[in-house]
Design a protein around this nucleic acid. Structure first.
Lengths: 352, 352
DNA sequence: GGTCGATCTGGGAGCGCTCTCATGTACCGA
DNA sequence: TCGGTACATGAGAGCGCTCCCAGATCGACC
């Protein structure tokens, strides 16, 4: 009796959003049948299906995601985890490309993208807790550092996860998508050597990231292959400012540098700024090669770089994740995209 | 009895995530008390609170968001709606800045950011349906066009919504944050006039966006104020390529143009490309003014532009939204940030 | 004609949480 | 000593959905 009063009171203010129950009533079927009709409609007669479809339209019914996910244990959302101290990383076109690719892959799905930026100020474990808390069906980790220790935690949690960029510990069976960074570094070295440059230097990314390490290793292997001595190494942080500072240090150590490979386009731009400020011409005095190939601001000196199909990689990562959510535990090989040298004016005096 | 068998079977594979019930048992209190302790702890004795806190730690308890939101009707997530046909808009630093700002505002909240990109291929109403479906507690709409018709729909739905950039219909009481685009356009005109330029032209954004319209109106008002004739108008789309094409059209119409105001930095860059290709020097032959001031690629010609505090605006929008979710219906005035002229080399021959 | 299988349907439990309400306990002033 | 107030607590319902199960319906086949 108390309950009845309750229901009466609650129903009073014109129920706002229709529930499955309302839908079923409108369609003249049971809640169960309505549910089946909504979800793919197996074991539903054509008439019942049609009645439900019509009711959905006339009522403007949308399933309550919370209720559904409470019982299915699926949330229909995945997280894009960006683990960088500074929020300004979003300014890096790399992340824009990643978001573009992931969005594209989710296009025809009803999956939603939750942006998870874990940052310096916040509790680092909070992100992992969130991920383990069953709030998302899977995660794409896009930028992770050695000290994160996330790889193990995520692998242990069993949450479907795909890394963009090789994780530090690949023995855990974590899926990932990567570009062949080693080969990219090597190609840069060979290209500069072939152009007759001999006093070569590189500006690395933060070496707690595999991409930075691989590019450096490849670079050094390329130098050796070309019969050149291991050149100078300056450490950057993938930002333009970092590239500028690193280039200044390089010039201070060896003012005769005639070729620089920066592990990202942004750093290459920064390096060019420093070179010009120091009175060096590019590519006349110093040839510069970047890495990424998705900085397309017009009116700049076209940059020789290593192309990385970031949008495509992100799309692939998302599709891998969806597959992994659908069929967990299936072993999947890492997907490595080839690195491709794109020669432009910053390394070729005669070009342009 | 059947039920018992069920529960037995289900419990078998070591219950994975602890529920509130488990937590209560571990803490030696009832589910109700545990719930109260979790949620702020009013009407909970210090001992009970301590016991629950300890249990949370030892069990690694995380509330099930779906269950919670099923009863509270809150999802603890807000949507960032980006309504652009081309996914590549993400490459525009403007959106990066918006994401940065929103993320910053959500930092100390347990709110999550859901990225909602509605695009050409998809069903346009799908986004609105999603928003009305109660999947998020509120929405920030960042880029909307006249034909969307969203303003009315969203206003009618009662979903807390904040626009970044004035919506077309401000009579609906929709909250928004904007920069004074009119004043920005005016400042650009006055600046170029003061620099002695007389054959002025502008490159607009898509005129189905209020920002583009306001900048054009302000520009024309400024010209009139300076006693100059209404100059040429070319339409762009906020992209570099659009800026290039628009500038080409301007040059074709009047080869003697000596000052151009582009409604975005990206378009200004594109225009400079076209000008240089046509043999014009910047700022010698043609002075160029942009709008945005968040394109900071080093090594480029520093651009005179109208500064727009995008990160701050996005942060403000998010805070407004949070306030609106907390206390719906409270009337809130639009927040308009001042536009500020930043003079750099692209319009000042003597500078640099 | 009766039985079997296939197909469709509805009843009902329960996912994990919050919230209302009734009860229990402690402490105040009279 | 007792009624009253304040606060802490637990029982229980119910949010909207899915899914299991049992029942109903209908041909088809022996």
């Amino acid at each position: 009796m108390n309950e009845q009063i309750h229901r009466g009171l609650r129903a009073a203010p014109a129920r706002p959003t229709p529930t499955l129950e309302d839908l079923a009533t409108a369609a003249g079927v049971s809640r169960s049948t309505a549910s089946r009709a909504i979800n793919g409609g197996s074991r539903v007669s054509p008439e019942a299906q049609a009645a439900v479809d019509a009711a959905v339209l006339s009522l403007g019914y949308t399933p309550n995601r919370a209720a559904r996910s409470l019982v299915t244990r699926r949330t229909s959302s995945i997280a894009l985890v960006i683990n960088e101290p500074d929020a300004r990383v979003m300014m890096d076109p790399f992340f824009a490309a990643v978001i573009t690719g992931v969005t594209e892959a989710l296009r025809e799905t009803d999956m939603q993208l939750v942006l998870l930026m874990s940052r310096a100020g916040g509790d680092p474990s909070r992100t992992v807790r969130y991920l383990r808390g069953g709030h998302v069906d899977g995660a794409i980790v896009v930028s992770h550092h050695k000290a994160d220790g996330w790889t193990e935690e995520l692998a242990a949690s069993g949450l479907p996860t795909v890394f963009i960029g090789r994780p530090w510990d690949t023995g855990l069976g974590i899926h990932y998508v990567d570009v062949d960074s080693f080969e990219g570094g090597r190609l840069a070295a060979l290209h500069l050597a072939a152009a007759g440059r001999t006093r070569l230097a590189t500006i690395t990314g933060p070496l707690d990231m595999t991409a930075a390490e691989d590019r450096l290793d490849g670079w050094q292997a390329g130098l050796k292959e070309a019969g050149l001595p291991a050149g100078l190494v300056a450490h950057g942080d993938f930002t333009p400012a970092g590239g500028t500072e690193a280039a200044e240090r390089l010039l201070a150590e060896d003012s005769g540098v005639d070729g620089i490979f920066a592990a990202s386009d942004l750093m290459a731009r920064g390096a060019i700024t420093a070179l010009k400020a120091a009175g060096r011409s590019v590519p006349g005095d110093v040839a510069v090669v970047g890495f990424d190939d998705h900085l397309t601001v017009p009116g700049e000196l076209p940059l020789t770089t290593i192309n990385q199909p970031t949008v495509e990689m992100a799309e692939k990562a998302a599709r891998l994740l969806l597959a992994d959510i659908e069929d967990p535990g299936a072993a999947r090989e890492p997907v490595i995209y080839p690195a491709r040298l794109v020669v432009r004016e910053s390394s070729e005096p005669q070009a342009g």
